[in-house]
Computed example of a mutant assay.
Amino acid sequence: MQLFLALCFLLGIPSGAPDIHSLKYFFTAASNVPNFPEFVNVGLVDEVEISHYDSNTRRKVPKQDWMNKVTEEDPEYWERYTERNLGRQQTFKANIEILKQHLNQTGGVHIYQWMVGCEWDDETDEVVNAFDQDGYDGEDFISFDLKTETWITPVPQAVPTKHKWNSNKAEMDYRKHYLTTECVDWLKKYVEFGRSSLMRKDLPSVSLLQKTPSSPLTCHATGFYPDRADLFWKKDEEELHEDVVKGEILPNHDGSFQMSVDLDLSGLKDEDWGRYSCVFHLAGGQEVSKRLDKRDIRTNWKTNDGGFPTGAAAGGVVAALLLLTGCIMGLICLKKPPQGKVETLLVQVSSFGCSSSVISPLPFRHK
């Protein structure tokens, strides 16, 4: 099982499958992480943030205007789920202390994470996928296998927890019911609330960026929606796979997405420049193509006379564009350095922070 990089990796929407929708909830409890809440609850529909709760604000609030429609059926909705998250906050904090005792840990930074959600095909009305997994200190800890209806773990430290949870048949029955029924019912409701926004298709602006004349050339596309898209370099009409480094699709603060692909220019002859182009392809067939032209390259590299090369944009603008490729929606990435300590990377974009779930109540679970 892969490293549980909770809140950073994007599960599940298959490329080129516009009828697949996803509902995902991320819960994170942090111990001794500076300038970050002790508890954060994130909810996403089709990778779009829908709501927010954290232990600093202690309020659950909608992050999309269309999420306010939930109060048309249930006026007390936000207040009730605020109280529910206040309870979860204490439970998750306790989970960290329990795990620290079980693992003979004392101080230091520790992160406990829970991810749960489902995917649904709008066209066939089938449940495509469902997931429920816990992570601790940046690694998978335990997860629910829907096919076998049992808890599984990749680490020996979680074996006692696995046996304990597998002996609770009623809990596992509820878990299955939630993942295959309740989660999908909520997802259908949210998709209907936000259909005009979630089903839109926006083409990006495409820029050519280069730090220095010897650096790879970056083709950067930003502002597209949805995230089922591809960006690639081609020579004449053939897609290039050598001398190309493709980046991941990342979310922007406004709910749109961005991505980039680098091209090594070291072996490129001047007479061949016009044969190259960067192509953005959105699911459904829409494309944006930008032919390679030195005059269109934006850079913050200065010439010997102190000026900028032809076609260069202001350095600050380009720097901002380049920095965007590292932004990950204000979520948390965790990795395990060789020393065994958890390195916590906290990236926040503007006021777009973590958001909370609008999930039906799930049992509080202690390790």
Rank of each mutant, 00 (worst) to 15 (best):
M1L: 11
Q2K: 15
F4V: 05
F9R: 12
L10N: 09
I13C: 04
I13A: 07
A17P: 02
P18E: 09
A29E: 05
N32V: 08
N41V: 11
G43H: 01
I50R: 01
D54F: 00
S55D: 06
R59E: 08
K60M: 11
V61F: 10
P62V: 00
W66G: 00
M67Y: 05
N68D: 05
V70E: 01
V70L: 14
V70S: 01
P75D: 03
P75S: 06
Y77R: 12
W78V: 02
Y81Q: 07
Y81L: 15
R88M: 12
F92A: 14
K93W: 05
A94I: 01
I96V: 06
L99R: 09
Q101M: 09
G107D: 12
V109P: 03
Y112W: 14
Q113R: 03
W114T: 09
V116L: 04
G117F: 09
W120M: 04
E126F: 03
E126C: 00
D134W: 08
D137I: 03
D137C: 09
D140F: 08
F141D: 02
F144Y: 13
P154W: 05
P156Q: 07
Q157P: 06
P160A: 08
P160K: 12
T161P: 03
K162M: 15
K162T: 14
N166R: 03
N168I: 12
K176E: 13
K176A: 11
K188R: 13
Y190T: 01
S196T: 12
S215A: 15
A221M: 06
R228E: 09
A229D: 01
L231I: 08
W233E: 00
K235I: 01
D236W: 02
D236N: 11
E238W: 03
V245R: 13
G247Y: 12
E248L: 05
S266V: 07
R275W: 00
F280W: 04
A283T: 15
G285I: 04
Q286A: 09
V288P: 08
K294N: 15
W301Q: 15
D305A: 04
G307D: 07
F308L: 12
T310F: 07
A314S: 14
G316N: 14
V317D: 13
A319Q: 10
A319F: 06
L323G: 05
M329S: 14
K336V: 05
P337Y: 05
G340N: 12
L345R: 09
L346W: 03
L346N: 10
V347Q: 10
Q348L: 09
G353N: 10
P363K: 15
P363R: 10
F364D: 11
